[in-house]
């Protein structure tokens, strides 16, 4: 059921050391996927190596300031690292023309900004900007994205008249309309109530399973990561401290070391709840 990237996930529980910016990048695996190796970003990321697989939901977790958003931006090609390399299907990401990169990697920023009061359909159609496809193809992709998120009945509604949950879905529809192979989202669950959080996670898992979409989410809620991710990447002080299936990574020990909060898990796998203290 759970696809495992590392046969034996290494769980290093330690405070990471700051590696210098002179670190030499490691060679990259060329067999597909979105990967980074030896990525260093001054004062934010120290030697991060990760290999993400299509069809998987990967959660990036860590305390505030751990470098989660920075890593996501580096993987999306939006932030150039000081050293190290990011590759998409074995090709260095920074050598890919921006529109090609944008076609492959959809990025959902944390900000829910929509400057003008456009309709849901117009918003979703912005996702087609990286493409130079025919109007019919664009319309079909937008239609597909709206349908996937049950937004068809709201297509003509201006964004100012949407609820928080509808707005979040409309913004996600914008990314899906671009038909990316990767979806990178920075805290997509923020500002959503529990029902909408679960619905969104279920939708993303389905897209990963059915279409092979590679989903990478920055998540704060460890229980959501535990229950819905195929894989969890834990960052602390800019370094990867653990990487693997959630049940093996998000142990009570690790949580108490990284987050400084003693906690234990309740419930069964797939329906876990985290109890602090």
């Amino acid at each position: 059921m759970i696809k495992q990237s590392n046969p034996t996930p290494s769980v290093r529980v330690e405070r990471s050391r700051e590696t210098g910016a002179r670190r030499v990048s490691t060679t990259l695996d060329t067999n597909g996927g979105l990967e980074c190796a030896g990525v260093v970003l001054k004062a934010r990321l120290a030697d991060v190596t990760a290999s993400l697989k299509p069809g998987e939901v990967t959660a990036i977790c860590g305390p505030n300031g751990a470098g989660k958003s920075s890593l996501l931006a580096v993987l999306a090609g939006l932030l150039a690292s000081d050293s190290g390399a990011v590759s998409l299907d074995g090709q260095p990401l920074n050598q890919l023309p921006a529109p090609k990169r944008a076609q492959a990697i959809g990025f959902l920023p944390q900000s829910a900004e929509v400057a003008w009061d456009i309709s849901v359909e117009t918003l979703a159609a912005l996702g087609r900007l990286p493409w130079r496809t025919s109007a019919a193809e664009d319309a079909a992709a937008v239609q597909g994205a709206l349908a996937a998120l049950q937004l068809e009945s709201l297509r003509d509604r201006p964004v100012s008249q949407l609820s928080g949950g509808e707005r979040a879905r409309a913004l996600l529809a914008r990314v899906l309309a671009g038909e990316p192979r990767w979806l990178l989202a920075d805290e997509p669950l923020a500002n959503l109530d529990l029902a909408h959080q679960l619905a969104l996670l279920a939708r993303l898992r389905e897209l990963a399973r059915r279409r092979g979409l590679g989903v990478v989410l920055v998540l704060h809620d460890l229980a959501q990561a535990m229950n819905h991710a195929d894989r969890v990447l834990v960052l602390d002080l800019g370094a990867v401290v653990a990487d693997g299936p959630p049940e093996m990574v998000l142990t009570a020990d690790l949580i108490s070391v990284v987050w400084g909060v003693p906690a234990r898990w309740l419930g069964e796998p797939g329906a876990r709840a985290l109890l602090p203290g």
Partner: peptide, 20 residues
């Protein structure tokens, strides 16, 4: 025009849409 449309979603989203 196209770049300004992308900017509707903010600068980060615009760059992720391939805008320079």
């Amino acid at each position: 025009g196209r770049s300004l449309d992308a900017l509707t979603l903010g600068e980060v989203a615009a760059r992720s849409l391939g805008i320079d």
